[in-house]
């Protein structure tokens, strides 16, 4: 499987993501410049974290109209895999590949720290192989991560098991106290109806190497390799 990491002006997790895929997961990976019109045969496209276009207007709003997004959207509509991490999650929401939006954190602060995540479904590529009872420790780093959508869409997300991750405490309890940013029902990550587009606010690529003292993120990232099985 060939991975492509899109580089927008202001992306800053592109190198981390490439490193994690290449060195920690041993995969073929290339960078895709946002002005290009070609996915160069990539099977799995990742929109990385950062502050694309300086977060001007709304985070992700302007990147959604970068030239390569036409190809990314077509790829997703054909059933190809797309994953947005942090700013990438904001971009896929703005591109309407995933429902909802990421609002300003409830306490107005930029939050950069480790949180815990609990996988919510075994019905998605990203979470099927994860221990559904375990709390995974992964960092978040965002000012706009408060997931929001209307009541009907929320019901649909829950009914169709499209919620991939919720924020929890170290023991795995999903509670208000463990919600870092005021996200609706502690939602940290979701997928689309056809289950080929993923979005999550936490940064698994920042917890994928032994040298970083935490490899829980690697456990999450390597789930995508199950597509090969």
């Amino acid at each position: 499987m060939k991975f492509g990491v899109v580089v927008f002006p202001g992306s800053n997790c592109d190198d981390d993501t490439v490193f994690a895929l290449q060195h920690n997961l041993g995969q073929e990976v290339i960078k895709l410049w946002h002005k290009d019109h070609d996915l160069q045969g990539c099977d799995f496209v990742i929109l990385p974290g950062g502050f694309s276009y300086g977060d001007y207007l709304r985070s992700g709003a302007i990147s959604r109209f970068s030239p390569i997004m036409n190809e990314v959207i077509q790829h997703a509509k054909r059933g190809g895999y797309v994953m947005g991490i942090c700013n990438g999650f904001q971009i896929v929401c703005e591109a309407h590949l995933l429902p909802g939006v990421l609002l300003r954190n409830i306490e107005q602060k930029f939050i950069c720290r480790n949180i815990h995540l609990k996988a919510q479904t075994n019905q998605s590529l990203l979470t099927a192989g994860l221990d559904q009872e375990r709390a995974y420790r992964v960092p978040i780093a965002h000012a706009e991560g408060r997931y929001f959508t209307d009541a009907d869409t929320l019901k649909k997300l829950n009914d169709q098991e499209q919620v991939l991750f919720r924020y929890c405490d170290a023991q795995g309890n999903v509670s208000e106290a463990a919600n870092p940013n005021g996200s609706l029902e502690n939602i940290a990550g979701i997928c689309n109806e056809s289950r080929n587009v993923f979005g999550l606010m936490p940064h698994p690529e920042r917890a994928a190497d032994e040298a970083l003292g935490n490899t829980d993120g690697k456990l999450i990232l390597e789930q995508v390799l199950n597509v090969l099985v």
């Binding site: 207007l57 939006v101 929001f148």
Partner: peptide
Amino acid sequence: KLLANLIM
């Protein structure tokens, strides 16, 4: 299409 996000 761009200036406002009608969800929020």
